[in-house]
């Protein structure tokens, strides 16, 4: 690991002032320290955010939105009873990611900033299609090989319309999580739309997001029962009124360089009676435009099936016991739904 300066600011202003070219923000470190060990990133200065005040709370704001401080731990958030009760699929997504140890150390801001997985596997001379092409994007890249966004957490955040609160040299701004991630290009290797030197202060879920709590699921398909990145995942939720879907949200994970929210499918579901045919149509729509890379056309099929199942599960209702067992194919089938 390349030597670096280590600074421990005690205010946001100090933190911003400490920024320089080549610096990196350090939250829980579970992703950054790993990247530094592999040499994928080599910051010259680490700015340890752990002493910044006011970034560790989960609060409901006056307008009804929920604000999660950037340094709130992943475990802490998923296991907060109020939060998990209001946003069950977010809790499910967090608990299906990584391991207990990593979730304890990792912060929510760090989670949304996770680096795509394949970037450091393949040196300049290597074949981007080498290895497990299941981890390559099938949407949002126009057929170019690219790693998917590896976060589980971001998938339901996008579905629920979450935003990140950013502070930078030029003041504060909000970015929808849906607009946070991008596909790196040869000219611009950033995998997010943050400008270097900008800092995440908090994540915010809008007031209406809690309205989906009764029908809200995250499903993750992977080739190991736990502690594995997704092959495909989906966050699905809906408000059901008088037997009809008043509103639905559907976002796919692990299929694109960013969480893939599908407005067309959501629109289609609106006003419909929940059922296999309409869900199948929505799932079909969700993969519209998908392109296989390196022979991973099976992944398109799997993503469609995942979306369909997630919609089914969401319609059946959020399980009584939360946090649910991790959002695995098997874990989710054991418990009787509470709202069926």
């Amino acid at each position: 690991m390349r030597p670096f300066d280590f600074v421990r600011p005690t205010s946001v202003d100090e933190a911003l002032a400490a920024w320089e070219d080549g610096a990196a923000w350090l939250g829980g470190g579970t992703n950054l320290v790993d990247l530094m060990k592999t040499g994928a990133v080599a910051p010259t200065r680490l700015i340890d955010l752990s002493r910044l005040p006011g970034m560790r709370g989960i609060e409901v704001l006056a307008d009804g939105s929920t604000r999660i401080g950037a340094l709130v731990g992943n475990s802490e958030l998923a296991n907060d009873p109020d939060f998990a009760g209001n946003f069950p699929m977010v809790a499910e997504a967090i608990l299906s990611g990584a391991s207990g140890q990593i979730r304890n150390a990792a912060t929510v801001a760090g989670n949304v900033m996770q680096h795509p997985r394949e970037a450091w596997f393949h040196g300049p001379a290597s074949d981007p299609l080498a290895g497990d092409t299941g981890k390559l994007a099938v949407l949002g890249t126009d057929g170019a090989p690219a790693a998917v966004n590896p976060s589980d957490f971001c998938v339901p955040l996008v579905a629920l319309g979450a935003v990140v609160e950013i502070v930078g040299p030029d003041g504060t701004r909000d970015i929808p999580v849906a607009d946070l991630h991008r596909m790196p290009t040869a000219d611009d290797p950033r995998h997010t739309t943050l400008t270097p030197g900008e800092l995440i202060l908090a994540l915010r879920l809008p007031p209406e997001a809690a309205g989906f709590a009764a029908h809200s699921r995250y499903l993750k398909v992977r080739d190991r029962t736990s502690f594995a990145f997704a092959l495909t995942s989906a966050a699905a939720c809906m408000r059901i009124e008088d037997g009809k879907i008043a509103e639905a949200r559907l976002t796919l994970g692990a299929v694109a360089p960013r969480p893939w929210r599908v407005a067309e499918a959501e629109d289609l579901l609106k006003g419909q009676t929940p059922g296999p045919e309409v869900f199948a149509t929505a799932a079909e729509l969700a993969l519209d435009g998908a392109r296989a890379v390196g022979g991973n056309d099976w992944k398109i099929d799997l993503a469609r099936r995942t979306a369909l199942r997630a919609l089914d599960m969401a319609a059946a209702g959020t399980p009584a016991e939360m946090p649910a067992l991790p959002a695995s194919v098997f874990g989710t089938q054991r418990k009787e739904p509470a709202h069926a």
């Binding site: 596997f121 290597s126 080498a130 290895g131 029962t225 736990s226 991790p326």
Partner: peptide, 21 residues
């Protein structure tokens, strides 16, 4: 990797062995 020949999943995140679950 067919180009360089190196193993691209040479760690425990890429080379899976069973976990407790």
């Amino acid at each position: 990797d067919p180009v360089t020949g190196r193993i691209v999943n040479a760690d425990f995140a890429g080379y899976h062995v069973p976990v407790n679950a």
